[in-house]
Each structure stands twice: as C-alpha cells, then as structure tokens.
Write a protein that binds this DNA or RNA. Sequence first.
RNA 1: CGGGGCGUAGCUCAGUCUGGCUAGAGCAUCAGCUUUGGGAGCUGAGGGUCGUAGGUUCGAAUCCUGUCGCCCCGACCA
Length: 620
Amino acid sequence: MANPYPTGWRSKSTPFLAKSLQVTPADSHHGSWQLWGSLGTVRIFYHLAMIVSKYLLKTLRESPSGAELPSHIFLLRGGYVKQLASGLYSILPLGKRVLNKIERIIREEMDAVEGQEVDLPLVQPSELWMESGRYGAIGAELLRFKDRSEHHMVLAMTHEEAITDLARYVLSSYKQLPFMIWQFKLKFRDEPRSRGGLVRVREFVMKDAYSFHRNDQDLDAYYQRMYKAYENIFQRVGIKPIVVKSDTGIMGGKIAHEFMLESGYGEDYLIISEDGSYSANQEIAEFQRVHAKAVPLALEKVATPGKQTIEEVSTLLGIKPEQTMKAVMFEAEQDKRRCLVLALIRGDLEVSDVKLRNYLKVPWLLPAADDFIRSFGAVPGYAGPVGLKERPDLLVLADLSVSEAGNLVGGANEEGFHYRHVNFLRDFQTPHCGDFAKAQAGYLAPDGKSVLRAVRGIEIGNIFKLGTKFTQSMNCAYLDEDGKHQTPTMGCYGIGLGRLMAAAIETSHDEFGPIWPKEIAPFHVHLLNIGREPEVMETCAKLMSEWEAAGFEVLFDDRDERPGVKFKDADLWGIPLRLAVGKKGLAEGMVEWKPRREKEFTKVPIGELTSRLREFYPDH
RNA sequence: CGGGGCGUAGCUCAGUCUGGCUAGAGCAUCAGCUUUGGGAGCUGAGGGUCGUAGGUUCGAAUCCUGUCGCCCCGACCA
C-alpha cells in the first residue's frame, strides 16, 4: 500500500492517532482488515480476530421491554440476537460465533458415536407425513401450505420421516446396521405461544440424530452411548442437567429421557425423589399411594343437594377428600368411535391426562360435554361408576387409589345424591385399573423410601427409543442372513442449539452479563486499550497479531470510548479473559489480566502473557 | 384458544384519564470542542404519517369501533 494513512483522519488535534491505529480494508480479496502501527501492517482475519469498531453488533444500555429471563436480556443487550417477530430471532455475528462453538462440540461428540452428518430438506411433501400417520396426528403446530403447483407441503418440525425415507433408500442388508445419521437443521413449529427469548421459539436449529438397529438390544446399547455423549456435550457447555424419564407421547416409542436444566422459568415440572434415586417428568412420574385397608361397609345413598365438588361433599359429610372418589370425564376417539372416558380417582388426587392418553393410545382427550355425559346415564356433578350400564363406547378407568382403597364416597348418578362406602369389585368393575394420577410434591417415591419434590425445568435435549413406529409405517426394511425382510428399530436424539445457548447463560451469568464457559465463548480473549497513546495502541496491535498467529481468537475493543463503557460491554460479552492495556501499566511493562469470573484484575508482565494464555486455555 | 397488559424516534419511556399551539425526555447516531480507569460534559444536527383502518369533532397520539402486532399467565407443546 502506497499510502499508509489513506482514510479516516480522525482529529487535527491528535494526528498521532492516525499513526497508532488506522483500520482499512486490506486487499479486498482476502476478507480481512489491516491495522497500521509503527510496527507495520497487521492483517486481521475475521474468523480469528475482530476489532469492535468494525463488528456488526450493538449493545443496549437498557433491556428491551418484555425480556425477563437473564438469557433473554443479555442476548438482546449484548448484541447476540435480535427479535424479528414473535418466536423468530435473527442471530448476529457474536451469537453466531457462540452457536458455531456449540456446533463444534456437538459435531465432535457425534463423530465419537460414529454419526454420519447429512442435511435433509426443511420443506417436505405432505404425503411423507401421511405415510407415517403424523399428518393427521399433529395439530396446527405443523405448518402446512401449497406450493405454486398446488402440491401440499409442510415445514418439517422434525425429520423422522425424511430420515426414514433416506434409510429405506440406502438400507438393504443387515451388514449395514447399525448406523446413525444426524444433522444440524432448521425446524419450524408453529407454537401456540413462543416465550422466554430463545427458550421457546418457532424456528430454530436442532441437532437431530437417528440411529437404526437390527434389534432392541443393539438399540439399548447405542442408547446408552448416546446418553453418555449427551452428558459430555452438556458438561462441555457448562450445564449440569437433571435427567428425567419422559413421556413418549404419540410417537409410540418405549423409553425416553429428557435432559433438563432446572429453572424457575421452566415449562416442565419435574418430579424428583429426595434421595435422588428417582426422577421423571411430572407427566409420567409415578408415586406410591397410601391408603387404609378397610372392611367394606354397606353401600348407602346419601342426599347431597347442591354439593358437587369434592370439597363441598366432604365438608357436608364431615370426611376428608381422600375418602371420596372423583369421576373425571373426557371424550376420546377410539377406533373411530366417540367414547366417554370415565376416569375414577381418589378425591385428593388429580388425573394425569398424559397417562390416560398413553393408556388409551389416543392422541387427544377433551372435557366431555354435559349432554354426552347424560346420554350414558351419568349425571354431571354427581357422576360415579355405580349403576352405569356397560357400553362399548364407555371406558371406565380406575386409578389404583380407587381400586385398592375402599369405602369411598362417590356420585350416585342422581341429581343431589352420592353413595357412601363405594367399593371396587363389589359395587363396580372395570378391567382398566392402573396408574392415572398426577404425581405431586410431597407424595412418596415409587420405592416408598423417600419423598418426592417438584422443580421446574427447561428441556435442553432428549433421547428417545422410537422402536419401529416409522420404519414399519414407512416400509423401511432390510434382508437378514436368511434372506428374510426385517424391520429395523430406531432411536432419535435431539438438542436445540439456540435453547442450549440460552441455557448456558441461565447457568452462568452475573448481574452484568453472561460468563461464557471457555469452550463456547465467542472469543478467547477480550483485549482493550485504555487511553490512545501510541505505545498503548502499538502494544495492542502487537499482542493481537501475536495471539492471532498462535491461533487464539481475539476481540479487540479499539473504540475511542471511555474505559467505563468498554468494561460494561466486556461484561456483556462475557469473554472468559479480559486484558486491558493502559499507559500506567505499560510503564511497568504490565497488562491487566482479569478473568470474567473473577472480581479483580491482576497485573501480568507483557512477556508472560502468551504463556499465561496457553495455561488459561490448556486444551487449546 | 381463554384471561391480562402494551403499541409514541434505533432503545427505554412521558404525554392519553380531562381532545386544543410546531409531539417531548434520556440513551443511541452524526459534527465540533473538552474529557479518559466502571455506561462523561458542553454546543449543534439528523431521526416519529403517535401500529393500522374507519368514525365522532371546528380540531384526535388523546374519545369510539374494527383490525394487526408484541409481551405475560393459563391451555397446548414430536
């Protein structure tokens, strides 16, 4: 370059600035910038180093209205993301760097379990989803539309169908099994309500992995390896998840685990035993019922005029709610027939509709309409199982709290009357007895050895033994040693990247901003100058180029801002190490060394910085 | 989908109840000067069809109706 000071002469009164720091585009073909100093030219490559004055980000002094979670506030204030619409976020360069780091970690862990990375379409033909049966089973969350040639299409909310389609194309022999295919891929879910910044969004990138196996034993073994891989991933991003058993829902699988971050903002309720031996999502959590065995007394009708709720009835009769029986009624469709579901449960417990749905194998349950209830001879408010005529479309389900207890007060199916001393088998029967109750804090753990407590959690990943749900419905098969067609069994494993980034902040922040774990911080080093003296700027330029050459990622805050502004932004950017170069320190040959996690800085001789850096990042 | 709240400058908000001059402040941005260790000071500048459509009125950010958007609680969530 002929002219070392081509543009941007800042100030007539401080011409030395132009010599100390002048940033211009380098040879435009190299996508880099050059810093001029008396040392000569320093070329800066974007992927390794960045100078703040050229970086596309914007920090906010105040948090935008509506942001409540620390992760939401800091991601917006720090310039990591920007909201475009409800549940839709633009990722800015700084946020993208964090996501890239997360991707790198996940890719390494997927490699370690022999995953093969692919990329499948977001837009998919509806036929594919009809084939698996999910087109009808999923509601408005699945976005459906027509393309210009009137083909029915969907935006994929997950990729089981597409992956099974790929698997049935490539898979022919047992010799190919097992294998695992995975991708980082956009998902779209038309959520009824997005919330909490990146915690629940409508469009997001997910790492989704799918494994194919000859049998359940092989799937079980691989599932365990994936479980371990997930533990590695979360540990590396600085998160300590609670792992819970979870609902397998209409996916039809067998076993699933969710990796949850405990958080008061979480959408899921987790049930955990005090001794730590049991944990499950509340949807499916089990517990041990406590009930007194009693000698059945004679059935007795009592007048309870106007008393419909458990509370009213038990108060009137002077008994405890646990001596009553509640009948909760739903409508469901089973075998294409509209059915009345009469769920019986002890008065003090609550019905879990997830458990009901899973037992009945139906996708939905609706509260039953009054006239529908009456058509079965039951009376809303006074409904009970006693005296109801058996019908094929009447499904009576008895929770263990009812079938194993006795002498309960239940509805008489007559306006204003209940029965005392209702007993299972003697007064009513049903083959459908089981666990249909929602577990609550304070109940006994399934093993009876400790008490359950409830915490809220954010789901940050799941692993799922799918079984043959997709391979069967979509006709994915292979030939075994005997030349016979066999259906492979599947597992699927997901992690939402944006949510993971938010979860990392939820786990690690202070009042000023995030404290990024070393492995996912957007940069390794945050370098900043205090004062604009030539020697300060030159030292910064020299250090930057030295570290860049050593492979460290450096963010240099070269702005002509007051130290306070730079420190505040440094906190907001949360880079693990902040190094400040100022005239005073420089006079002693020192630079200020401040890990983000610590309150105070220490002074380090300039000559030792690079070796200290290597100690700070031993894995680098 | 039910309940609640909010839409005024890039961001945070005042003004709306009780209609009335050219629609305001702080922060941010641009220019200049000063300043330089935890979000500086002064001077000046740019930036808003007050979400949108209609209505009432001599006159609407303000009152009425519709509509769109955003947030929170609940329902929902492979």
